[in-house]
Design a protein around this nucleic acid. Structure first.
Length: 466
DNA sequence: CTATGGCACGGATT
DNA sequence: AATCCGTGCCATAG
């Protein structure tokens, strides 16, 4: 939005400038909006004019954040593999943000996101009095998406009847990810079966196998399980296969496949991204379009009338007005700097991680923040701040944290998953180390074990035979 | 003896 | 300065 101002006018002058730029850099677009609004309200020298220009061609844009000239495929002929578009925030207003803040407890970042995501879904289905229960349950999920408290405890703690808690839990369990908010993996699986049954065939006695056989199942002792249930071996195996392919005992884990067929694009919006990356055309060598979302509509500038007013002002007011003017122009400079930095950062990321963006997690290249800092000529803490707490929407409509671009192990984990998925017999961790090394991933045996745990893959002696 | 999980250390990240 | 992650060493299970 501010890119139409020449970039070379940006230079850090004072420590105040630097400090403020740092702060702004670490804000998400939502927080940025609050910051800007506060500044607008408190500083008469600052002005928001209702016009916006295309950052690339400086055309005045009338109705919409996308430039009709630059965003068209006609730009395809250019060499630059990346197109930048700076858009206003098109996803939504901020009406629902306060709601979220009310209910959220402090928790780890990952569960917070899951909790918020689920809460959004269930809020309309839960009566207002019961929303507190929903919020309480959702703030007591572990990273697997299972409850860390018993329903009885919740009922006692909130002084409500157990049946109400139970009712709320039922609603939550049916939200995406299916089975979230269950008390145990068994319960989560049962919920998933229940829902799946509506749309497709499930093996006979599946519920029984799950309810009574989790111990056996996790050890792959199908024969023993079959005996204890009085079922045929093959029937039990069929159930086990169905579970492995269609169900997820840990609803909170993101590893549940990339595609969720039944859900439309809407349900995939975890939270609003700060950056959207899409492809300009459908072709494989298409340019990438990087949109850095900006939460305001219009252009921010120093009010020229205010400048004039200073000259005519009386002496005692002059000082404070000058101060305001200073603050305003500093603020704008900092915003420019922020956008400039974000843009350069994303340019690097989009170039380096092109394969990841287009073709999936397997192709993520391990990039460190320190390296990018060096390339961009900024301090590494700058990168840290810029990356923290921000999210990106990829062309496949998945929204991921910006920090994922720096995950050193994601790629290795994906390859590991793939190897294990295709293995003919359960491979031991040391053998997996070998196979990973052959594909260029040098990791320690111990680390393979950790990756397995992260992906929820059982150790070799408990895995199913091919 | 082999395969794994727990604990702790060192480097990177924040 | 505090925290996270990969890794080495050791105890334990089979």
């Amino acid at each position: 939005m501010f890119q139409h101002l020449p970039v070379h006018t940006i230079r850090p002058l004072t420590t105040a400038h630097l400090a403020q730029t740092m702060t702004l850099l670490s804000l998400t677009s939502g927080e940025l909006q609050q910051q800007i609004e506060a500044e607008l309200a408190s500083n008469p020298a600052l002005e928001l004019v209702d016009e916006i220009r295309c950052p690339t061609c400086r055309r005045l844009l009338r109705n919409g954040g996308v430039c009709p000239v630059c965003s068209r495929p006609s730009l395809k002929s250019e060499d630059d593999p990346i197109v930048f578009v700076s858009t206003r925030d098109v996803v939504s207003g901020f009406g629902d943000v306060e709601e979220k803040d009310d209910y959220e407890d402090t928790g780890s970042a990952s569960t917070e996101d899951l909790a918020t995501y689920v809460f959004r879904q269930v809020a309309p289905d839960v009566s207002v009095e019961d929303r507190g229960i929903a919020a309480f349950l959702l703030t007591h999920l572990d990273e697997d998406g299972l409850l860390t408290v018993s329903l009885e405890e919740v009922a006692a703690y909130l002084h409500v009847p157990l049946t109400r808690v139970f009712g709320v839990q039922k609603i939550i369990q049916r939200a995406d990810p299916l089975g979230v908010g269950s008390c145990s993996t068994t319960e989560a699986l049962l919920v998933q079966v229940d829902v799946l049954r509506e749309s497709r065939h499930v093996p006979e006695n599946l519920e029984r196998v799950i309810r009574d056989g989790m111990d056996y199942l996790s050890r792959r002792q199908y024969h023993e399980l079959a005996k204890s249930l009085g079922m045929a071996d093959e029937a039990v195996r069929e159930c086990a296969r169905f579970i492995a392919e269609n169900l997820n005992p840990f609803p909170g884990r993101s590893s549940w496949g990339d595609i969720r067929e039944p859900s439309g694009p809407q349900t995939q919006i975890f939270y609003r991204p700060d950056i959207i990356i899409s492809r300009l055309t459908g072709e494989p060598d298409s340019q990438l379009v990087v949109e850095i979302l900006f939460p305001l509509w219009g252009t921010l500038r120093v009010n020229p009338l205010f400048k004039q007013a200073i000259r005519q002002a009386e002496d005692e007011n002059k000082e404070s007005m000058k101060e305001d003017l200073e603050r305003a122009s500093l603020f704008i400079k900092c915003l420019q700097q922020r956008n400039h930095t974000m843009q350069r950062l994303m340019a690097q990321i989009a170039t380096l991680q092109r394969d990841f963006i287009l073709y999936g997690e397997k192709y993520l290249r391990p990039i460190t923040r320190a390296y990018l800092a060096k390339v961009l000529g900024v301090h590494e803490s700058t990168i840290s701040r810029a990356v923290a707490n921000k999210s990106v929407q990829l062309p496949n409509r998945k929204i991921i944290p910006l920090a994922d671009f720096f995950d050193r192990s994601l790629s290795a984990r994906m390859v590991l998953k793939e190897i294990i998925h295709q293995e003919a017999r359960p491979l031991s961790d040391s053998e997996l180390v070998q196979l990973l090394a052959e594909r260029g991933y040098e990791v320690a045996r111990r680390t393979v074990a950790k990756y397995r745990a992260m992906e929820g893959i059982l150790p070799a002696n408990l895995r199913r035979t091919g």
